[in-house]
Structures are given as structure tokens and as C-alpha cells.
Write a protein that binds this DNA or RNA. Structure first.
Lengths: 232, 232
DNA sequence: CAGTGAAAAATTTGATCATATTCTGGTGGT
DNA sequence: ACCACCAGAATATGATCAAATTTTTCACTG
């Protein structure tokens, strides 16, 4: 049955060849939390997710464990797993953390940035602008995340990137709620300043731009949530 | 089905009965990584852990998933799950992160500390001194962790506490290796300064004390690992 | 007589295990 | 040295058991 382990022929780059199921489920659930249809406070059940995603329960369980460990979901005591509701204190923590993490990563990213990195960031930012003009909120959320995520990866700091990524998972759902109220207008976009700083090779300026972007965006979340902590 | 629901008589108060197995496994594995017998670079297999801990494989898998998500273990590509080896860059990241996190948490903890908190910290620190005098390294590691952990919890910042806790999981194994070389002598202990600051109600002084403790300890790790990155 | 409370049963959900299937890595033969 | 086979490990499924939540009913009171 084998007889082809060596050849591969390379014609098929194996698009989704061997991707473990729990990995797939994890990514789907993660996207669901980050951009998607899971609102803060909403409770999910394992078996409900099994049917929703059409998967066995073991992969779903493992993906859930992972998301819970990352803070994307909460083990609401008895029998509930839900997307965490953030209060003002939590938002304050997240603002403090990102205000410290993101500028540092942006500084390191700028120090290491090559032309292709700059091109990639510029491309994402262009798509992001298009999504804003289009009024495509889901696209905005996803592209904004990908922009920052690309910046993290350029910093060559795997642990801090992990931490920063975990932070996104925590405030992602609330960000979505806020954007749902505000609309794609008036969203902060200091990305142009950042791109200029990277182009000029000025790490400190890049850090300052990112700090401004983060603070502005997060403060908007804080204000919006403090105004209406619950939406129903 | 009618025969079941026998009364149980309730004579057994079941001291720790309702602790899910995967939770137990997780804590055991976590302790193993933090203080214990799993050295950096050491590979573990699922089935090996099943026998070692005497448990089914589903709970072990879930616990592993969780530890991997927290960065305590690494999915070493092929077929191996191992304790991550830290290089100088990783240590630098951890130093930066703790240098920022720990002082902030110590400041908040000091602002919120009550007499019972101070007593608890003092008690842990006394036990810690005893462990050092005794030359009990495992005790030192565990009590040192519990000291900082208690401080985190006093800060009333659940998200940042989670992040800081995850950081411990990452450098715990390396800390153990370093202490194995250095011995319990010469270990940093700026805890007295911290306790004084808390007693005096001086948050900034507490932050400074913790910063000194963290930097001193982590720099020791960095130097020791850069001198001998591999131990065999 | 109606409404509210609790208690019990039933359904739903979560946890664990045993088992089958697949993939990887090593080994032996040519 | 290379290719094929084998063994072991990890992934995924389904079933089974236990616990909790919910619903329903019955009794008691106003």
C-alpha cells in the first residue's frame, strides 16, 4: 500500500494534508471567539459545539481545554463554559499589559524589519482600509488582528508574542461588541504612523505609534463598556 | 434501572471526591514541571505518563493540552512532548516581562494588603528561610513560588496574575536547574524588604523590592545558562 | 380554589474508558 | 544505501456512567 513515500511528485503541496482534528477545531473556535458569533457571557456546551462543528467530542474537549487555558473561555463553575465578561478592572489590566507589551514588540520588530516585512504590513493595512470603507466590520476585526499579529512575529520574541496573543483572545469579544455599537467609523488607525516609523527605521517612533493606537482603541472599549456593561 | 439510586447512606463525607481526574493530572504534571523531576529538554510520552500517573489517557491528553497552551510544555514537532529549553533570548524576554509585571502587582498588592495578608506572606517567608537553612532545594523552590503567587493574588488583578503565573511555568524548570548548580546558598531573597514595605504601606518601595528580587534571580539564571546552556 | 414551594424524576451534559484507525519512525532485507 | 515492512504511539470515535439542571407534579397554605 505504501510504495510512494519517497516520490510525492510535489505536484500537490498537500493543501490540508495532515492537520490534526483538534487543531482544526481549535482554530475554528478561536476565530469564533475572536471575531465571531460568540458574544461575551454567552455559554456554550461541549455537545452543542460537537453538533455545531460536526466533530467528535474528544477533539472539541481538547480544543476547549486549550482555549480555557489561554483565557479565551471561562469555566463558569458548575456546568457552563462561557466567553468571559470583562469589567472595568479587567479592561484596565489589559490596557496596562498592552501598553507595555505592544510598544516593546513594535520596537524590536522595527529593529529587525526587512523590506518584505514592510510590504506585508502595508498590504494588510491596505486591506484594512478597504474593509473600513466597505463597512465590513468582521473584515476590520480580522485584519486589525492580523496586522498586530504580523508585527508581533517580526519581533522575534516567541514568549512575549504568545503572551500578547493571549491578551487579544481576552479582549477580542469585547472589542467586537464595542465595534458593533460604534460602527467602523471612528475606529483608531495609527497604523500609518507605525509604517512610517518602520520605513524610517526609528524603533522608538514605532513604539510610540503603537502605544497611541493601543491606548486609543482600548480606552474606547473601556468607555463603551462602562457606559453599558451589559447588552441585551 | 429501578434498582439503582441506592441510598449511599452518606456516611462518607468524601474529602476530595469531586475533583475531576484531568484536573488532578494537570496539577501533578504542573508540579512536576515547576519543581520537579522533569528537566528541560526531557521528552515525555502520553502513554508513559498514563502509566506513571496511573490514569486513563483521555485525562492525560487534556492535561497535556493545557500545559502546552500555557507554555509549560512544547510540542516538539515529531512525536515528542518535552519541557522547553530556554535560550538567552527567551530568558531576556522573561526578565523583561517579570520586571514589568511583578512590580506592578506588588504595588497593587501593597495598596490592598490587610494584616492577614501580611501574616500569610511572613509565614511563607519564614518557612522559606527554614528551607534554605535546611538545604532543602525543592522546599525553597515551592515556597518561593508560593510567596510570589500569594503576592499576585493579593493584587486583585486576575488577568495579570494569570499571565505572571504562566511566566513561572516557563522558567520554573530552568530555575531548578540553576539552583541545582548553585545550591541554596547565595539565592536572592529581597523578601524582607518587601515585607517591610508592605508593613509600612509604601507601594512604590514594595515594587522596587520585588524588582530587585526578580532581576537578581533572573540574571542569575541567565548567567548560569549562558555559561552552560546544556547540562549532560 | 388557586398559587407557590419543594421534591423527585427525567433529560441533558460532562467525564472517563476501551477500542479502532492512522501516522511516524525504526529495522531488516535486498 | 535504499526501499518495504513492522511496531509502537497518538489521534479520534462511540459508548457508558455519573452528576446537575430543569421540569413536572403534588401538597400545603392563603
Amino acid at each position: 500500500m505504501t510504495s510512494r513515500t519517497a516520490r510525492e511528485t510535489g505536484s500537490e503541496p498537500t493543501p490540508t494534508p495532515r492537520l490534526p482534528a483538534h487543531e482544526t477545531i481549535y482554530r475554528e473556535l478561536r476565530a469564533l471567539v475572536l471575531f465571531g458569533d460568540l458574544a461575551p457571557g454567552q455559554a456554550v456546551t461541549i455537545q452543542g459545539l460537537c453538533e455545531r462543528l460536526g466533530a467528535g467530542m474528544t477533539p472539541v474537549r481538547e480544543a476547549l481545554r486549550r482555549l480555557i487555558a489561554e483565557g479565551a473561555l471561562e469555566f463558569q463553575g458548575n456546568r457552563r463554559v462561557s466567553v468571559p465578561l470583562l469589567d472595568a478592572g479587567n479592561i484596565g489590566e489589559l490596557i496596562y499589559a498592552r501598553q507595555w507589551l505592544d510598544p516593546y514588540l513594535a520596537k524590536r520588530a522595527t529593529e529587525r524589519a526587512g523590506p518584505e516585512d514592510l510590504a506585508r504590513l502595508t498590504g494588510i493595512d491596505d486591506d484594512l482600509d478597504a474593509a473600513i470603507l466597505r463597512g465590513d466590520m468582521r473584515g476590520y476585526l480580522e485584519l486589525n488582528y492580523r496586522f498586530h499579529r504580523a508585527l508581533y512575529e517580526m519581533a522575534d520574541a516567541p514568549i512575549l508574542t504568545d503572551v500578547a496573543d493571549g491578551l487579544w483572545l481576552r479582549f477580542g469579544p469585547s472589542l467586537r461588541v464595542v465595534c458593533g455599537r460604534v460602527g467602523t467609523e471612528g475606529l483608531p488607525d495609527k497604523h500609518k504612523d507605525l509604517l512610517d516609523a518602520i520605513r524610517a527605521g526609528q524603533p522608538e517612533a514605532a513604539a510610540a505609534a503603537i502605544r497611541a493606537d493601543v491606548v486609543q482603541g482600548m480606552e474606547q472599549v473601556r468607555q463603551s463598556l462602562s457606559r453599558q456593561p451589559r447588552d441585551d
